[in-house]
Amino acid sequence: MRLLIVEDETDLRVSLEKAMREEGYAVDSAPDGDEGLYKAESNDYDAIVLDVMLPGKDGWEILSRIRKLKRTPVLMLTARDGVRDRVKGLNLGADDYLVKPFNLVELMARVRALIRRAAAQPNPVLTFDNLTVDTAARVVRVDGAPVEITAREYALLEYLAFRRGKIVSRTELYEHLFAEDDDSLSNLLDVHVCNVRKKLGKEFIQTRRGHGYVVE
């Protein structure tokens, strides 16, 4: 899953980037409104965390511009907690709203919920025969036993699981699993797919040659 964090407060932005990466997200960030809007328009993010008070274009403007092009879930962050601000944000198409100072764990949970909802999978636990993917706890179980799996492998699995039965192209996988400054060597994806198959069984991720991968 790939996130964009638009926040002008350097310490907070860096802290959020680190926290989200540790959660297994591919994270891009922008320190001001112009860069934030550019990135939001030119990439397909799974969710955007957007500060309201930004130098350059403010959060409201970015939100309304994004909404013209994309349905990416947006969580607004603001240090203002007026009801009017909240209503304005939601009316402009924000999917959720958090007031600074927020609880980091809550932010993470809300971002996960936004992504789940956007994939039309309101249930946090996805089940495939003997295998379950608990997207809230980020745990994969085979026959009820947790499987050791790296963050990136989990991200690959989760992305495909959310799109069960849909063929996902390699380009789309690259887009959503790697941030812009990650080293994304062309065979990196193959390595992750191979590792997941080793841990969960060969048939779980199927290859559609020339099209991409699919989880049935």
């Binding site: 680190k18 240090a79 600074k100 980091l104």
Partner: peptide, 25 residues
């Protein structure tokens, strides 16, 4: 008042987010 509360909330937000992140593991 809105500006002042914004300016005060921001450093608190940083401190909380950073400590909560570090304490996760």
């Amino acid at each position: 008042t809105a500006d002042a509360s914004h300016e005060l909330r921001t450093p608190i937000a940083v401190m909380l987010a950073e400590t909560q992140r570090v304490l996760l593991r």
